[in-house]
């Protein structure tokens, strides 16, 4: 069972990575306009030409 000594920190680190990514998105204002962002993904082609 000694393997959990390594596995637990690894698992927690991976989890923290995900949490960190979420908090970064939040800080980056990616959650300010959920509705708009959903549609931007499909409509940006035209904007890129400008």
């Amino acid at each position: 069972m000694t393997v959990i000594i390594y596995l637990l920190p690894v698992a927690l680190f991976l989890g923290l990575l995900g949490l960190g990514a979420f908090l970064w998105c939040l800080k980056d204002h990616q959650y300010d306009d959920l509705k708009g962002a959903a549609y931007r993904a499909v409509m940006d082609q035209d904007a890129a030409e400008d």
């Binding site: 300010d32 306009d33 708009g36 549609y39 931007r40 409509m43 904007a47 400008d50």
Partner: peptide
Amino acid sequence: VPDIEKALGRIPGVDQARVNLTL
């Protein structure tokens, strides 16, 4: 959204026009 942003982007001098659809 793209309608407004593109129209405003065409005005010379405008750096950024960003619509928040939710609000």
